[in-house]
């Protein structure tokens, strides 16, 4: 009885399903077919035998990884830095988009928008050199500026106390414009009638933002937040690699830089698969949990 009803439901939505089929096929071919590569985490890879023919070794690579003190530290550092990112870099583009949205002159708005996404196109290699000069305690412009107010100087890149903050702020600066684009898109679709209605009710700008704007972009914010949770182990390798040094390993060494120094890129496929499997299982769980919470609160989520 239930079976027939399912078939009937598919038949009723045949067009919908037809649209889905090519995509599902693509996922099967390009994503599910190669997934056997994951087994490498539990095998000792042999070039001659290939992935399928290599012999199983159980959890050997995982126990080895967690026995490395450097790995454990990199693991926590990654988590802490990404948590800061979540706290500061996640809301920043939303606020930026809201502020930008309040600008009345279309021309000025467009110019600001265009300029704000420029840093996204500069690689960390280039930016690192600039930040090194800008943030120097003796010759850097920022410390000169702070000196005028009688603060500092700070060794932003060489002092473990400031390094994580420096990472978060520089990353925020680089990505704020680019990340705000999706929110600007959401803002642009808010029905203007809603604003007019609010204004008739005597709402001021701030109340308008609270009661009209924020609820309207809540769905997209929720989804972005869920994905951001999945990035708690994400790789900011390029940034850290170009900015860090031995004095800040304690606080700045992340999974990407640690595995890079281990030389995992070369022959140790099994180990690097194990690293990514560990982080991805956690990320995936975090996404599922956040999604469940979000669903309960405002009914928007990935599922």
């Amino acid at each position: 009885m239930k079976k027939t009803s399912l078939i009937q439901r598919y038949w009723k939505n045949k067009y919908l399903f037809l649209l889905l089929i090519p995509g599902v096929l693509w996922y099967i071919v390009f994503k599910y077919f190669p997934i056997y590569g994951l087994t490498l985490a539990f095998k000792d890879f042999s070039f001659r035998k290939g992935i399928i023919g290599s012999s199983w070794v159980g959890l050997k690579h995982f126990t080895y990884l967690f026995s490395l003190s450097g790995f454990r530290r990199a693991f926590t550092n990654t988590l802490i830095i990404n948590f800061y990112q979540l706290l500061f870099s996640f809301p920043a583009p939303i606020i930026f988009a809201l502020l930008l949205n309040e600008i009345v002159h279309i021309g000025y708005k467009k110019v600001v928008q265009t300029i704000s996404y420029l840093p996204h196109f500069l690689s960390w290699v280039i930016l690192a050199g600039m930040f090194m000069q800008l943030l120097s305690p003796s010759t850097g412009a920022l410390n000169h500026l702070l000196g005028v107010f009688g603060i500092g100087p700070f060794y932003f890149l060489g002092d473990p106390r400031y390094f994580r903050g420096t990472l978060v702020v520089t990353n925020l600066w680089k990505s704020i414009g680019w990340n705000s684009i999706v929110y600007l898109a959401a803002l642009s679709n808010i029905d203007t009638q809603l604003y007019e209605a609010a204004r008739l009710d005597g709402a001021n700008k701030f109340q308008e933002i609270i009661h009209v704007t924020l609820p309207s972009i809540a769905p997209i914010v929720t989804v972005m937040l869920i994905f951001q949770m999945g990035k708690l182990f994400g790789d900011n390798f390029d940034q850290v690699f170009n900015l860090y040094n031995a004095a800040v390993y304690e606080v700045g060494d992340v999974l990407g830089t640690f595995t890079y120094r281990m030389g995992l890129r070369d022959m140790q496929y099994s180990l690097s698969t194990a690293v990514s499997l560990v982080t991805n299982v956690i990320s995936f769980s975090l996404v599922i949990i956040t999604n469940a919470i979000a669903k309960r609160i405002n009914d928007y989520g990935i599922w």
Binding site: F33, Y269, I302
Partner: peptide, 27 residues
């Protein structure tokens, strides 16, 4: 959409789990 959660999960799963460079090259 029938079995919507299943189809979505099938797709989102691949964001976190992939076979890596070697099988992709072979493919």
């Amino acid at each position: 959409l029938p079995n919507r959660t299943f189809w979505t999960s099938l797709i989102v799963f691949t964001m976190f789990f992939s076979g890596g460079m070697i099988p992709e090259y072979i493919l």
